[in-house]
Design a binder for these strands. Structure first.
Length: 603
DNA sequence: CCACAGTATA
């Protein structure tokens, strides 16, 4: 009935307006038009289904799929893919099992789904079971292995597959690069050229990323000129990898030049430039890029926020960071773990521990990094009890503590004078937690034991460690000996250090200071002599903190006027940021990769 | 007339 009074020309018109609505992401409008069409055909239904799933409306998609009178293979495959995109693996599998004629695309879609969820063995089984495999199916395995860190397996598949297309080569190049084997990636490209395979835009983009990671300055520049000749510099993928490439090679001017080729509307291109500025310590420039993005209504992503906040951190500008925080709240990133974790680190480094805690509480899905950041933040700030409180909370969650958690905890105990607790933590962790105890942890424990005044016990502890101590562990003991004027242990400790690390200037200096304090001048000059003979250079201190907020030059070479520099042991006096470290200088053997501040103490 | 699915890129 309806179909008869519905002329074919009109139908086509309706179809194209539905397509347009889906493209413009006005899905509800598309649905309204769609509902007016009597007996929509399988093509249009499929398009509508894809529209739904791409907007995370799996329910609507499934309902429509259910109502379809006829379903072809493509409709089934679209529905399966849609389930996977909406992260419903079980439903995808159910449909796959029900599907009447599974073709190679259906199998490949499922394999890809399992691979993306890290279910490598299931993917492998499906790949073995599938009745026939084309190049795309093999490529899917290469990509899947690489994204699960199994590069060697990927290489095996790459070598075994019957025929390779440009996607196979590109996937393999990118996979090697993203698993830390960028040089191999570049070699593979040479091989590809040798086979006479024409690179595509994607290939160039991956290749330039490999150059960026391998710091292959010349090759990267060559590829750049080739890309210019082919007219591909305007491509957003190519442009952003070029920007990153030049930034990594410390040629930021060239990054800017690539950026200026065109008025870019892609966040990723903007973020590449922003990150480039930040990593090259041009923090003012980075923040300018960020605010320009906002001005031009380019919606920042997690990485944009992280890079911008890193720059705020580096210049110690609480105001700039607060503005970025405000922007994050406005744009709905408040609950994001990615942005939240950067904010925690930012606030705690700027001494605003209250804000760090507030930020932490707002994060919806707190991950390991969130917990570690707040823990280390509290530890740094001298709030050992808070760090401890967060740790006890953490133990009640699903998140498993790791080495960094442990370091943070030991530092917290150490700074806040909770030395007995620190020893308990150590026992607790060695006994109940399956983490690797590092030399950093041992050094921290030695420090803690020494704080209890038990130098002899600390020495025993070092000797009984299951791994051989390094010079840092002994240095912690030597440091304590100097404070307690214990010559006997100091001499044994220094001997161990000099055996392990003959150029350790800190050991010489500490020992010499110890003798000097007792007026043993002949020993002092003997040590000075030895130092000269062995050509031990005094090391300069270095910190990310600046005495005044915005003086970037100060920490370019690590030396500002207000630093008191001692070899290896760095006492940093921060006149304008008393909140950061509390009143007295803090002690910590390298807190963690999470915080750049490395402060060792004498107090 | 066409129109819908799987493999590579920041």
């Amino acid at each position: 009935m309806g179909a008869i009074s519905f002329p074919e020309g009109r139908r086509i018109l309706f179809y194209s307006s539905v397509s347009d609505c889906i493209k413009n992401e006005t899905l509800d409008e598309a649905r309204q038009i769609f509902d007016k069409i009597p007996n929509p055909n399988v093509h249009l239904c499929t398009k509508m289904i894809t529209g739904f799933t791409q907007n995370n409306r799996l329910k609507d998609a499934l309902q429509l799929f259910d109502e379809m009178p006829v379903r072809d293979t493509i409709a089934w495959n679209s529905m399966i893919k849609g389930c996977l995109e909406c992260r419903d693996l079980a439903m995808a599998r159910k449909l796959f099992d029900q599907m009447p004629d599974r073709n190679v695309v259906a199998w490949t879609t499922m394999i890809n789904g399992y691979m993306q969820l890290g279910r490598v063995e299931v993917a492998e089984r499906l790949f073995r079971e599938m009745p026939s495999r084309d190049t795309a199916a093999w490529n899917c395995m290469i990509y899947g292995y690489c994204s699960n860190g199994k590069v060697d397996e990927a290489v095996r598949v790459f070598e075994q597959m019957p025929s390779r297309n440009v996607i196979s080569w590109t996937s393999m190049i990118s996979g090697l690069d993203q698993n830390g084997r960028s040089e191999d990636a570049l070699r593979l490209f040479q091989q590809m050229v040798g086979y006479g395979i024409e690179p595509t835009t994607s290939t160039f983009s991956c290749l330039i990323s490999a150059c960026a990671n391998a710091l292959a300055v010349d090759l990267g520049a060559q590829i750049h000129s080739r890309v210019v000749k082919l007219g591909l510099v305007l491509d957003e993928f190519v442009a952003s990898s070029l920007i990153t490439f030049y930034a990594n090679c410390q040629q930021l001017e060239n990054s800017v030049e690539v950026f200026n080729e065109k008025a870019h509307g892609s966040v990723v291109v903007w973020t590449s430039l922003l990150t480039g500025y930040s990593l090259n310590l041009k923090h003012g420039g980075a923040l300018e890029v960020f605010s320009e993005m906002i001005k031009r209504v380019i919606f920042p992503n997690d990485s944009s926020f992280t890079s911008a906040l890193n720059s705020c951190c580096a210049i110690g500008s609480l105001d700039a960071g607060k503005m970025i925080h405000a922007e994050a709240v406005k744009l709905g990133f408040e609950a994001s773990a990615f942005v939240g974790n950067s904010l925690i680190t930012f606030y705690s480094k700027c001494g605003s521990i209250q804000d760090a805690i507030k930020t932490f509480q707002v994060i919806r899905q707190k991950n390991l990094v969130s917990w570690n950041s707040i823990l280390v933040g509290c530890a740094q700030y001298g709030h050992g009890m808070w760090a401890l409180a967060f740790f006890t909370q953490m133990l009640r969650t699903e998140v498993e503590p790791d080495e960094i958690t442990f370091t943070g905890l030991l530092c917290a105990a150490n700074h806040s004078g909770m030395w007995q607790k620190g020893r308990h933590f150590f026992q607790f962790f060695s006994k109940y937690m399956s983490i690797e105890i590092t030399l950093q942890h041992y050094a921290c424990v030695v420090d803690i034991i020494c704080h209890c005044g038990r130098l002899d016990e600390a020495e025993e502890f070092i000797k009984n460690m299951p791994v051989k101590a390094n010079s840092l562990v002994w240095l912690a003991l030597l440091n304590a000996c100097c404070m307690h004027s214990n010559f006997e242990i100091a001499e044994r400790a220094s001997k161990c250090i000099m055996d392990l690390d003959p150029n350790c200037s800190a050991a010489y200096t500490l020992l010499s200071n110890l003798y000097a304090s007792a007026g043993r001048w002949s020993d002092v000059s003997r040590i000075r002599m030895e130092m000269r003979m062995r050509d031990v250079a005094k090391q300069k201190g270095c910190s990310w903190l600046t005495p005044e907020g915005d003086k970037q030059e100060n920490y370019h070479n690590g030396i500002g006027d207000s630093w008191v520099i001692l070899p290896m042991i760095q006492v940093i006096i921060i006149p304008d940021l008393p909140l950061l470290c509390g009143a007295k200088p803090m002690i910590t053997p390298d807190i963690s990769p999470l915080c750049d501040v490395q402060l060792l103490t004498l107090s």
